[in-house]
């Protein structure tokens, strides 16, 4: 089973051209979260409990109100 998330409307994202990852930015409070995966993979990954780093990034994005669970 996979969890899917969507980026909130007010959040800016950028996927770096070297494929190293992506960045989320909230213009309201200037908070920034960087992730070392592409946005699509990050938001639609098949759930894997052993992938701590993935869970950590998702939780960080949720705490900063940058994404919502679908």
């Amino acid at each position: 089973m996979s969890d899917a998330y969507a980026v909130r409307d007010n959040i800016l994202t950028h996927h770096f051209s070297d494929g190293s990852g992506c960045i989320f930015f909230d213009p309201m409070d200037n908070s920034m979260v960087a992730a070392t995966k592409p946005v699509e993979e990050l938001l639609n990954k098949e759930k894997s409990e052993s992938d701590e780093q993935h869970c950590h990034i998702i939780n960080t994005l949720l705490i900063h109100k940058m994404i919502t669970k679908l």
Binding site: L12, H14, F16, S17, D18, S20, G21, C22, I23, F25, P27, N30, M32, A34, A35, T36
Partner: peptide, 29 residues
């Protein structure tokens, strides 16, 4: 450096990021 790490490290050195916000973010990118 990969661009994601470089962006994070570079942004730590932004002086007026707080006030320019999105403009600063877009310029850094």
């Amino acid at each position: 450096m990969d661009k994601t790490s470089a962006m994070v490290k570079f942004s730590e050195n932004s002086f007026n990021f707080n006030f320019l916000g999105q403009q600063s973010f877009e310029t850094n990118v």
